[in-house]
């Protein structure tokens, strides 16, 4: 315990600093790296830029969803409604667009606005009615999904026009000699950076972390607690809409799109070191967590493990990662 000075790091040499940085780096990056190596060993063509980009564009929706979920998780809440938002985005977009390319833009904007409304409802129910977010978003899960299916009568209607689907399916051709640079990856990078800025470089993010850490202290420090909390839900729902647009683009209309993604996004965020009940979390690490899960699925698939066992292994890995995090946190105290 010393008086604070400007140079806080006790490590001096460059190599020492790098070693220190590597040692304190979030373990999820190493997990992702090991899994990546595993996949490449099993399937060497995977690492070819074209193939890897295909993989990345497939992973973009869950990664974005996880990044959005982090906002709610660090604020101390949960958002179980994201899967439903994805489903409804796909179904309702198809009804509204109905294969008319002229409608794409306003449909996407409308969907984003719809996502904002869902987030607003989640946030306001949590903030003003004081309903625990787990329950509030369980309610909106049912409501949002119900609205989507009610509107469509239970089966997808209409088509998504090609210029809507291009976001999840196409890319810029001829870039850097690649076959195609997927728009999904571009969106992933752009939105990922935006969310990173928001959580880690803007005052807003620090207020969000403070809120998740200690809501009362945050309120007494002048943080507009309700506004910050609600906005976290809004951000989460809107990224879910983006994920929905990408998934709809990639796979076309289906009511199965989005099922189970809520738990997957929470698990991925936790794998990325996000602390449930708030106060700690990082967008890039959470995205790496989502990527690690996708890599894990690919690897298990390549290993030829039957599908059911993949669930079991996924469960083991999630528990193991979190237990390890808890264990090392205890050790570091």
């Amino acid at each position: 315990m010393t008086q604070l000075t400007a140079t806080t790091s006790t490590v001096e040499s460059l190599a020492g600093r790098i070693w220190h940085r590597l040692r304190t780096l979030n373990p999820v990056y190493y997990i992702a790296l090991v899994l990546l190596i595993g996949v490449v060993v099993q399937n060497p063509v995977f690492i070819q830029p074209d193939n890897f980009l295909v993989f990345l564009s497939r992973s973009a929706p869950p990664m974005l969803l996880t990044a959005g979920q982090v906002f709610v998780l660090v604020s101390g809440g949960f958002d179980l409604s994201v899967g439903s938002v994805v489903t409804s985005t796909v179904i309702i977009s198809a009804i509204l667009a109905n294969n008319d390319p002229g409608t794409t833009w306003w449909v996407i904007l409308l969907m984003l606005a719809g996502g904002a409304v869902v987030g607003l409802v989640n946030g306001m129910v949590t903030a003003y009615l004081k309903v625990p977010s787990l329950i509030a978003t369980l309610g909106t899960l049912l409501i949002v999904r119900g609205i989507g299916l009610f509107w469509s009568g239970g089966a997808p209607r209409g088509y998504l026009p090609d210029n809507f689907r291009m976001w999840g399916r196409r890319g810029i051709t001829g870039l850097f000699g690649l076959r195609e640079f997927p728009y999904a990856v571009i969106l992933l990078i752009v939105i990922g950076v935006l969310l990173w800025l928001l959580l880690h470089r803007l005052n807003y993010g620090r207020q969000l972390l403070a809120l998740g850490d200690n809501p009362r202290a945050a309120r007494l420090s002048g943080v507009n607690v309700n506004l910050v909390r609600i906005s976290a839900f809004v951000i989460c729902s809107m990224t879910a809409v983006v994920a929905g647009v990408l998934l709809g683009g990639r796979g076309g209309v289906s009511i199965e799109t989005g099922t189970g993604m809520e738990m997957q996004s929470i698990a991925a965020a936790v794998l990325g070191g996000t602390m449930l009940l708030g106060g700690r979390g990082s967008v890039p690490a959470a995205m790496a967590g989502a990527l690690a899960l996708e890599l894990l699925f690919s690897l298990l698939n390549l290993l030829g493990l039957p599908k059911p066992l993949r669930d079991a292994v996924q469960g083991l890995i999630i528990i193991g990662a979190v237990a390890y995090a808890a264990y090392s946190a205890k050790r570091n105290r």
């Binding site: 497939r58 929706p61 998934l247 990639r250 796979g251 076309g252 209309v253 289906s254 199965e256 799109t257 099922t259």
Partner: peptide, 9 residues
């Protein structure tokens, strides 16, 4: 699972 996205993958 009858899921377009999974089938495509």
């Amino acid at each position: 699972d009858g899921n377009n996205d999974k089938v495509k993958t």
